[in-house]
Design a binder for these strands. Structure first.
Length: 469
DNA sequence: TTTTGAGTTGTTCGA
DNA sequence: GTCGAACAACTCAAA
């Protein structure tokens, strides 16, 4: 074959790209194509920060391709129609793409003729991790045991040195990104992804070796912060997993090994939730567990707005929500605390929160996001028991002991003494004055009493369970 | 088919 | 302050 299209979707990388490698193998010339799909980009599940991260990533990818004698062809419209047009213009005989597993991607891809899907999105794709009877796992731990027992993936591939020049094809310029707040701490692109990975796993004192101890500390940078890059495939799951396995093998001691193993498990969780969404696509609309379909949620728009805007009066929740709004990212522990507060304290339907997170998170991934929300709601696979309700003050003290995190995102708490920083409403009046933080003026009073809200949630969940029986 | 052990991330209470 | 049990049964996975 003379020419094939390499259709880029969620694999914005040149290294370890099996679709690109297959395209280079199959033809003399490869045309890299990305189609801006209005069905995705204009959807209510995508927000401006994630679009900006994508556009910047496309610009970087184009630049990386130009260094290799190629360039990115960018189109906008219905992918099937645009790809047909590019194929006709270039005389391409096939389209190669990395397989994606979301319901939308599968439906979209089914309408593209001459499409050859190639692995690479996951180390072990849906269908390859199954129980003895052939059905999919719905519990993480046995899933992970089987996943780890499968043959190791081959070594990650380097980027090709040269991508044969494509014929001249009409291409849009990559649109100027919408204004991007300077606080966004995620430069886009494959180079940055690799830099972060190296920084996370290199050396005997690499952060990954402290991961088991530090990953829950919201005041520290203990996590890899690779999620936006994994989401768009600027780094492959295989590259990350290989790095985790190498780190385990090279761990200088047992504690370090535990850190690397914990991180590997987080990577496997990502794959687990892709499998779950693949096998159970209804989770996007409904509880995974039928026995919790009937929770009587509070359809309370003003409480939701307070949560969204970081004005609940609980510092750990408000800091988390402001970190999200200002940076497009939130620490994983903070995600659980914020989600638990919306679901259990405000008794608001988890789908409201799931949608807002999808709109705002740079790493917003339908599988991982849905899995996380259903886990917190207790409605999902392998979910938390319903009576497990996070205490926003206890969580703050435990995972932000000095209050550094809440002060960073809530400057109004800057001078609040440490013992009150996670429960500022308990400050006596004179302490409020001295700290320059008067409750109700500088920082809100709690919008709900946690102890009362906890009982309300337990009642609502018990009631839903009883109704089923 | 039946049985058995196990199950990401918490909190509260009482000893 | 620290510790284990209770929370509430249920479903899953595998023998």
């Amino acid at each position: 074959m003379k020419t094939v299209l390499w259709w880029i979707r969620r694999d914005l990388r040149l290294a370890d790209n099996q679709a690109l490698a297959a395209a280079l193998n199959a033809a003399e010339r490869v045309v890299p194509v990305f189609v801006l799909d209005p069905a995705l980009l204009a959807s209510e599940r995508v927000g401006p920060l994630r679009v900006a991260f994508l556009l910047e990533g496309l610009r970087r990818l184009d630049s990386d391709l130009r260094q290799r004698g190629s360039r990115l062809v960018l189109r906008r419209g219905d992918p099937a129609a645009e790809l047909s047009a590019v194929a006709a213009e270039t005389g391409a005989g096939a389209i190669l793409a990395e397989e994606d597993f979301t319901p939308y991607a599968r439906q979209r891809d089914s309408r593209v003729p001459s499409l050859q899907l190639v692995g690479g999105r996951l180390v072990h794709p849906p269908g390859s991790v199954r129980k003895a009877d052939g059905t999919p796992y719905v519990v993480y731990t046995p899933f992970s045991r089987t996943w780890k027992g499968l043959p190791q993936p081959g070594a990650a591939m380097p980027a090709p040195a040269h991508v044969p020049t494509a014929p001249q094809v009409a291409s849009l310029p990559v649109p100027d990104q919408p204004e991007r707040p300077p606080a966004i701490p995620f430069p886009s692109g494959e180079t940055e992804a690799q830099r972060r990975l190296a920084a996370f796993v290199t050396g005997d004192d690499a952060p990954v070796y402290r991961y088991a101890q530090t990953r829950d500390r919201v005041d520290l940078d203990g996590t890899s912060q690779l999620s936006p890059y994994l989401h768009l495939g600027m780094i492959s799951s295989r590259q990350a997993v290989a790095a985790a396995l190498d780190a385990i093998a090279a761990a200088p001691n047992a504690a370090a090994r535990e850190g690397a193993e914990t991180w590997l498990n987080e990577l496997i969780w990502r794959e687990f939730y892709v499998h779950i969404l693949y096998h159970f696509p209804h989770v996007l609309e409904q509880s995974f567990r039928a026995n919790l379909q009937e929770i009587r949620w509070q359809d309370d728009a003003s409480s939701f707005a307070a949560w969204r805007d970081g004005c609940t009066g609980y510092p750990i929740v408000d800091a988390a929500m402001r970190q999200l709004a200002q940076t497009g990212w939130m620490h994983n522990r903070a995600r659980m605390v914020a989600a638990s507060f919306l679901i259990k304290d405000l008794l608001i339907d988890w789908r409201w929160g799931e949608r807002y997170f999808m709109q705002t998170l740079i790493d917003g991934d339908s599988a991982a996001n849905n899995g996380g929300w259903q886990w917190t709601a207790g409605t999902g696979t392998d979910a938390a028991p319903y009576f497990r309700v996070f205490h926003p003050v206890a969580q703050g003290r435990k995972h932000d002991p000095q209050g550094t995190y809440v002060r960073r995102w809530l400057p109004e708490l800057g001078r609040v003494p440490e013992r009150f920083v996670h429960q500022p409403w308990k400050m006596p009046d004179d302490v409020q004055q001295a700290a320059g933080c008067v409750i109700g003026r500088d920082y809100p009073a709690p919008i709900v009493d946690h102890a009362w809200a906890r009982e309300r949630a337990l009642d609502a969940y018990r009631h839903a369970r009883r109704n089923l029986a």
